[in-house]
């Protein structure tokens, strides 16, 4: 067992924390502590450089102006983040954080916001916001994931990365590919918030295991009940959306 605490970086929470994103950091930290593994949450304040010495980097969702500031900060800290990831740290990004890990984000007015290119993905602003419950089916061994999305981005993955999973209900990447997010070694990006880790304890443990190695199981009865409830709600949403589209198609 490691002596030094697991250092979980919450990157720019004032800028990238619109949708309860702090919850993801809390879930990772507590699931370590409950297993007897010391863990601490390190908040990287906006304006500060991102240190290369953390074990996990969490990037959350944000509104437009804060996203621009966050992008500037991340570009300045790109080398640290890339080095930390190459040397074994886990990167987990949601929504705006996902977009900033990609190459670029093209806003509705055509302005281009450069990301850091850690993920082979490009995002453009879509005509509508995708809002509602989402169900995503990732590759094994991860189980079905539940989340809530609220974003206008349409993200297309390049050949250098695979999606987190197929969308069973909701929008996800929204580019017509039927997928959500991106996945690589020690990296998960997604449009699911809610926040997503309290709703999907298996995904939280997957991220932790990529740093810590195999973990003993943890009682997650309430998380699993919540997950089952939300998966059912997401399926209902999916059915309602499908029915609406069918009626529209038939005129």
């Amino acid at each position: 067992m490691r002596d030094a605490p697991l250092r979980i970086g919450l990157v720019y929470p004032e800028l990238l924390g619109t949708y309860g994103d702090r919850g993801n950091a809390l879930v990772l930290a507590q699931r370590c502590r409950w297993r007897g593994i010391p863990a601490e949450i390190v908040e990287v304040a906006a304006g500060d450089p991102v240190p290369a010495t953390l074990d996990c980097y969490l990037l959350g969702g944000g509104e437009d102006d804060p996203q621009h500031l966050a992008a500037a900060g991340l570009r300045a800290s790109r080398a640290s983040l890339v080095r930390a990831h190459e040397e074994g740290a886990v990167v987990f990004a949601v929504c705006a954080g996902f977009q900033l890990l990609g190459h670029s984000y093209v806003a509705a007015d055509g302005t281009v916001l450069d990301g850091i290119g850690l993920v082979d993905a490009r995002t453009t602003a879509g005509p509508t916001r995708l809002i509602g419950e989402v169900v995503v089916e990732p590759d094994a061994p991860l189980p079905l994931l539940t989340g809530f999305e609220n974003h206008g981005g349409r993200t297309t993955l390049g050949p250098g990365v695979r999606p987190l999973g197929r969308v069973r209900a909701g929008g996800g990447n929204g580019d017509g590919s039927g997928t959500d997010g991106a996945r690589a070694d020690r990296l998960v990006a997604t449009y699911l918030h809610g926040p997503v880790l309290p709703r999907n304890p298996a995904l939280a443990d997957h991220l932790l295991a990529e740093v810590l190695g195999p973990l003993p199981p943890l009682d997650s009865v309430w998380e699993e009940r919540l997950r089952a409830e939300r998966l059912a709600a997401g399926s209902r949403t999916g059915l309602a959306r499908w029915w609406q589209q069918r009626r529209l198609a038939r005129g």
């Binding site: 309860g20 919850g23 809530f148 609220n150 809610g194 926040p195 309290p198």
Partner: peptide
């Protein structure tokens, strides 16, 4: 319909 603020 989105109570994600619970975590804030």
């Amino acid at each position: 319909t989105d109570p994600s603020w619970l975590w804030d």
